[in-house]
Design a protein around this nucleic acid. Structure first.
Lengths: 222, 222
DNA sequence: GCATATTTGTCCGTATGTATA
DNA sequence: CTATACATACGGACAAATATG
């Protein structure tokens, strides 16, 4: 088999996706946008009717999203949007500290292109008061930090953690007071990184995550 | 609602699982035992007939296992047992180094009970030549190391990585020459840990993982 | 390269069991 | 306690893609 055939076949496999996966993608976006309230049930009938798909297909999509911890499957009761609790927040930040700090320490040269973009976009969105997008860009910055490890599995892990964190943020209101103080700290971490101050960047990142976690926990009980 | 009702309800929710999840559990065991050859296709007809379940239910189970990277779903071609390649091996060990070394560094006191058990069991199995079980106990030792972080998400990640590594081991034959040299190194890591020599344990663990990775890569091309 | 058989993808109907108003 | 709504699971059907001779 020729190389061009291989490439063509590869492309076909990439382009085409099953209905279940496409539906999972749609629902994932909706959940992350906050279109369904955390804790709310997703009715099979409503969604199959709305998207024009069968129950079987939808149930396959539900399985995917439940495995990503965006939905919770309760037997004979249906699927619900996950509502992370305090223990989840603690655990999410525990994992973030392990992964992101390891990424910072392991960085040799500054592949900091994506990092600059994300930080700049977060600042621009904050300037215009688009706080939801500040959150998105902020998470992307931290995903880009983890991506310095160059590991596909770490990338996927961070995507999943970010999606879960979006659910956490949806539980909180008053997003501005949460995001605003962290923007300059992101920029400073980035500047230390490109300056080659690995130790300083790691220390700042660790403090950043500890503070964000603490603030979330405080705000979370209400 | 009374507390005892809550507990009863909790217990019911824990005990009962959907058919799809039970089927996924059965197939997961079979795959990890090597009952299906890596790269082989899992026929819907054969499995539905063998387990006495419907196609829809089986397809939900397939979705779960594909999400765990034990199966690969190819549109209109079916599901196949994942056959990790060299890049996968490199990535698996990259993640292991990040997680396990972080766990060793973070340990404050030696909660080393589970660690001793796993190392002892690996040695006992090696003594009797049960090399498949040596691999199982070996992976459990390293899962126990990661568990020192006390993070449910890290635990789940390590379970998943271990399952993938089982697939890697199935591709290799001659498991004895692979496992044997690492048993004394495991014990020494453990002894440094309980002695409080965190730095030494971390260094040994890092070298251990680097060697194992290299040996796997060398053996993998054939 | 073509025709056929096999297998998957998706939908629908339905019976059963469970949860909840 | 009953009634209703809903999820679970099965089986059949057909189209579409793939594998086989």
């Amino acid at each position: 088999m020729s190389t061009s055939d291989d490439l063509a076949r590869e492309r076909v496999l990439l382009d085409r996706t099953s209905t279940a996966e496409r539906v999972a993608g749609i629902l994932r976006d909706w959940i992350m946008e906050g279109r369904f309230p955390p804790g709310g049930r997703l009715s099979e009938d409503t969604i199959t009717a709305g998207l024009g798909i069968s129950r079987n297909t939808l149930r396959e999509a539900f399985r995917l999203l439940a495995h990503e911890k965006l939905l919770v499957h309760e037997l004979n009761r249906g699927v619900f949007v996950r509502k992370p609790d305090t223990a989840d927040v603690l655990d999410l930040y525990r994992v973030r500290r392990v992964v992101e700090c390891a990424a910072v320490r392991a960085v040799t040269e500054a592949e900091a292109k994506g990092l600059f973009e994300a930080v700049a976009e977060a600042e621009a969105a904050a300037e215009e008061g688009r706080w939801a997008e500040v959150g998105t860009a902020n998470l992307r910055f931290h995903q880009a930090i983890a991506a310095l490890l160059g590991s596909p599995r770490v990338d996927e892990l961070m995507r999943q953690l970010s999606a879960e964190l979006r659910l956490v943020f949806h539980v909180m209101e008053n997003q501005r007071t949460f995001y605003e103080p962290y923007l300059p700290r992101n920029r400073e971490i980035l500047e230390r990184l490109v300056a080659g101050d690995i130790v300083g960047a790691a220390r700042m990142l660790d403090a950043y995550l500890a503070d964000a976690e603490q603030q979330l926990i405080n705000a979370y009980d209400r």
